[in-house]
Simulated assay, not measured.
Amino acid sequence: MSDADDGRAGGFDGSGLRAGNAAGRRAKSAAAAGEQDAIIAALTPVIDGIAATLGSFCEVVIHDFRRPEHSIVALAGSVTGRGPGGSMSEIGMQLLARGDQARDELNYLTRTQDGKMVKSSTMLLRDSGGTVFGALCVNLDITAVNQVHALIGGIAGVSASPAAVPTTTFGDDIGAVLDAIVDERQLRQNKPWTQLGRAERLQLFRDLDRRGVFAVRGAVQQVAARLGISRASAYTYLSAARTSADDDTGLPDGTP
């Protein structure tokens, strides 16, 4: 028997090493998934207690970032009108896009499309390896509190102009959230797509990418439809936006 044959018999050839490495990666991935599932399972009964303690104006949500289209796996209370199986908001998409570099977002204000003022904190869920896989979110409807504050300030003569609060789309349909992000970004351009220069179009796709839009399955097709361009053009702009931070190389004249 040759040395090469002896090596194969002992299971030490290149293919054996590759198979062993692949099996090891699968086992590690399965262990991480099991740990992540256990963390979510342990938190699920806790959110009912948090919501009950803070009252009827509180909503507590557990998001699983591994399924962004239907990230809500548990929910207690009702502020944003979503339910289990619902989607994440723009804030969640931004955190998803940042991956393991994301940080907790605490005590921020948003306004829902139906006019509610919401104070929120989003606390990331990490496994023992530091991988971000979800979030625990607390949303408080402070609309009435804000109105009372403005009333008292007006009576006391110390009212101030309210700070602008961004409007956030909350919904069970991830498509509605994506459309709202694209529409808001286009409004800031103050031009329709056909009037944007190539650099402006690239910047639009960079912004959408940084906000986590393209982490959602099927988002490229949906963004293309919203902008009125072909799916191929959308992929071209996204690829160029990710590979070039400062110019619009790779985009031929006339790209729709």
Rank of each mutant, 00 (worst) to 15 (best):
D183L: 13
D172V: 10
F170I: 12
Q195H: 02
A176R: 15
D172H: 04
R198V: 08
P192M: 00
Q189C: 02
L196H: 01
A164F: 01
Q189V: 04
D172Y: 11
V165D: 02
V182Y: 10
I155D: 05
A180I: 00
V182Q: 14
A176G: 15
G153T: 06
A180D: 14
S161E: 13
A180F: 08
T167Y: 06
E184I: 00
G157P: 09
W193K: 03
D172P: 03
A163Y: 04
P166G: 13
A156W: 02
N190R: 12
S159A: 09
R185A: 14
I181E: 11
R198Q: 12
A164G: 04
T169A: 12
V165G: 05
A176M: 15
Q189Y: 02
G197F: 12
I181F: 10
R185P: 11
A160H: 03
P162G: 08
G153P: 03
D179H: 15
G157R: 05
W193A: 14
K191H: 09
G157H: 01
G157N: 11
L196G: 03
A163G: 03
G157I: 02
N190D: 12
S159H: 00
R198F: 12
N190V: 00
W193M: 05
D179F: 11
T167M: 07
D172G: 13
D172S: 12
G197M: 04
G157F: 06
S159I: 03
L178E: 04
S161Q: 04
Q189I: 01
G175S: 06
A176D: 15
R188P: 06
A160F: 00
V177Y: 03
L187P: 01
S159M: 04
A163S: 07
P192Y: 00
L196M: 08
A176K: 15
D179I: 04
A176W: 14
S161L: 01
S161T: 10
Q195W: 05
T168H: 05
I155H: 09
Q195G: 09
P192V: 09
T168S: 07
G153N: 12
D179Y: 10
L187K: 10
R185E: 10
V158G: 02
R185G: 08
A164Q: 07
I174W: 15
L178S: 09
I152F: 01
A164L: 01
P162I: 05
G154A: 07
G171D: 14
T168A: 06
D179K: 13
V177R: 05
T194I: 10
T194W: 07
S161P: 01
G157A: 11
N190K: 10
D173E: 09
A176V: 11
Q189D: 05
